[in-house]
């Protein structure tokens, strides 16, 4: 048999992307030989600081790990808030629906950075409940500041998923005597959930990217470290630090985005 390498279109594309990556690697190698190796050595030495906020990598007090922690905490808060908000925008009662719509649109139309800044000043340093002092450190403020716009975006995802459930499901459940909360719990949300997952994951990637903004709250996230602890490095070395940080975000978010897209296609495929 005649062996020829017939590559598919996707295969050729992957080959080119591989080529691009190889070119970047080659450029890095050439640059390293021209003196860049020294800079990379600096990056390597300081990498634990960039990742964990500590020079020797433990305990974790900041850095990129803090960004991830922040994204997880914010997403948890946003998931609860966003689901409630999304369902509220579908409520029968205008007293619930209209305020929910207003809040959703307000949050959706405010810039993340401005909202984060505003939360910094709107939220108190601490609240006192029955003599119990609950402090609001910058981290908590950052969590809330990032969770609010995420929740607004998520409420749109929830809304869309709930609306995509065939109206016959509502009718059937109502005819069986279910209450509205019961219908959501037993019939609608279990079905809507799988349609929400891709949107939820996309939002999580978006939120992780937005954690870069949390530097304005003064927490020791990767950008704060870049701009403070590493500021004494030479300008030239800083370029390498920036590249490394960009790569960290990319390496974390890209796989999530890819996975979300796969799921999206899978969900679109089934017509239940």
């Amino acid at each position: 048999m005649n062996m020829t390498f017939e590559l598919s279109y996707e295969g050729k594309k992957r080959l080119v992307i591989g080529g691009v990556l190889a070119a970047i690697a080659a450029w890095i190698a050439v640059d390293a030989m021209a003196g860049g190796a020294e800079h990379w050595a600096r990056v390597f030495v300081r990498l634990p600081l960039l990742l964990t906020g500590q020079g020797d990598g433990w305990p974790i007090t900041g850095g990129f790990a803090l960004n991830i922690l922040l994204s997880i905490a914010s997403m948890a808060v946003a998931t609860v808030l966003g689901t409630l908000l999304g369902i509220s925008t579908l409520a029968q009662s205008p007293y619930l629906r209209l305020p929910a719509f207003f809040i959703m649109n307000f949050l959706r139309n405010s810039p993340w950075l401005v909202l984060l800044f505003a939360m910094l000043f709107i939220l108190p340093f601490q609240v006192e409940v029955f003599g119990l002092r609950i402090p609001f450190p910058p981290f908590v403020k950052a969590v809330i500041g990032l969770a609010l716009p995420t929740a607004a975006n998520l409420s749109e995802v929830v809304r869309g998923a709930v609306q995509s459930i065939h109206s016959g499901q509502w009718e059937a459940a109502r005819a069986l005597g279910y209450t509205t909360p019961q219908i959501y719990r037993h019939v609608i949300l279990p079905q809507a959930l799988r349609r929400m997952i891709p949107g939820w994951m996309n939002l999580y990637a978006l939120l992780t990217i937005a954690t870069a903004l949390a530097t304005v709250t003064g927490i020791q996230d990767v950008l704060t470290i870049l701009n403070t602890s590493l500021a004494m490095e030479s300008e030239r070395v800083l370029v390498y630090f920036y590249l490394t940080t960009l790569f960290l975000f990319f390496a974390y978010c890209y796989p999530i985005a890819i996975f979300a897209r796969r799921l999206e296609r899978a969900v679109k495929g089934d017509n239940i």
């Binding site: 065939h166 016959g168 059937a172 459940a173 005819a175 005597g177 019939v187 079905q191």
Partner: peptide, 16 residues
């Protein structure tokens, strides 16, 4: 609704 049940044209079974 506990006394009156209904069967629909599109069945409306819960797919999950």
């Amino acid at each position: 609704r506990h006394q009156v049940s209904m069967v629909f044209q599109q069945y409306n079974l819960f797919p999950h």
